[in-house]
Computed example of a mutant assay.
Amino acid sequence: MNSQRPANTFRNAPQQPRPKAAHSSMQRLQKTGRWQRARRFIRERPMLERIYWFCVKAFLWLFFGSIGYVIVLKYVPVWVTPLVVSRWMDTFGTDESSHVYKKWRSYDEISKEAALAVVASEDQAFPTHWGFDFDEIQDAIKENQHRKRPRGASTISQQVAKNVFLWSGRSYIRKGLEVYFTALIELIWGKKRILEVYLNVAETGPMTFGVEAASQRYYGHSAASLTRNEAARMAAVLPNPRLFSIKNPSNYIQRRTRQIARQMRYLGGQKYIRNL
């Protein structure tokens, strides 16, 4: 009886050579050829070449200039924003006062009740997200399919990026720049500086910007001594400070003030923002 195992003809069969990746190589050659033809096309037209290099240099200047500007504003108070200029220009030819109420205060000179109030009302995930609250964005997209007035999902970081660096309006270009500057300030400034700038540049009333100016104008004292209820009422008007009033709150603002004060307690008080 033959105890030898039959030979494995499949294993011992000669290996077929693998086909070369000719297709991918051809694609790379085609792309390289197109790029070389485009460069030759530009070089043969001096005016087009000058426009091309102008655009490249302008992009590099704007890119590195924006990074440098963000670094400077990490340490320097933000005295003027596009929103302040826009509101000031809106007063031309009207009966409104053109005086701008705005006073910069450092984060340590502002009551932490004010900081907690804006976080509780505007962006409760602020201490943990990286500039964008994707859960809130998804919820807003679903809700806006059935709402007449779209609900926003901007974080405090996004609002700071928009107010400090960009113009008002809705466009894909502005939204793309908002994403860019939001990522920059999250990376360079950090949470504490972002919140400090927000508390100083947010519109809090007609021609009024920042919690210090609003506190002195409507409460008669510094933002350092804001109470929880005062801070909550100030945060309650932030969605539309030109329509809602801190000094003469409507029933809606009073109800929203109580809701924000409850959220401040549920978050655990000032310790919620202690380690920004």
Rank of each mutant, 00 (worst) to 15 (best):
P206E: 02
A183T: 14
T81C: 09
S97T: 13
D95Q: 10
R147V: 02
K247F: 01
A21Q: 15
Y218W: 02
K57P: 04
D133Q: 03
S86H: 13
E49H: 14
R50V: 02
S225D: 07
L238K: 03
F92A: 15
Q216M: 04
S250D: 07
V70H: 09
P127L: 06
V164F: 08
F244K: 02
Y101R: 12
A261T: 03
R233K: 05
A223R: 01
R87I: 06
G268I: 08
M207W: 05
P46D: 05
A224M: 03
R256C: 02
L267C: 03
W189R: 02
A214W: 01
W130I: 06
Q263E: 08
A115E: 07
Q159R: 03
S3T: 09
V100W: 00
T91K: 01
T32K: 10
R34D: 14
L276R: 07
N2H: 13
E96Y: 13
R147C: 03
K162G: 08
T155D: 09
G210R: 09
H146K: 14
R105E: 12
K162H: 11
L29H: 00
P150W: 06
G210S: 04
I67Q: 05
F126D: 00
G93H: 09
I260K: 01
I137M: 00
Y172W: 15
N163Q: 10
K148M: 11
E178A: 00
W61F: 15
H129M: 07
I156V: 02
N229T: 08
V72W: 02
S168D: 11
V85L: 14
F63G: 14
R18L: 15
Q270Y: 10
R242C: 04
D133I: 10
A161S: 14
A183F: 11
R151P: 03
I51K: 12
F209N: 12
A22Q: 14
S225M: 05
F181G: 04
I67E: 03
P6Q: 05
Q124W: 04
K192F: 04
E49W: 14
N248T: 11
Q263I: 08
A231P: 11
D135K: 03
E196P: 05
W189M: 07
K175T: 08
S3L: 12
D90K: 14
R50W: 01
R40N: 15
P150Y: 08
R255M: 10
R228Q: 13
R105H: 08
A120D: 06
E212L: 12
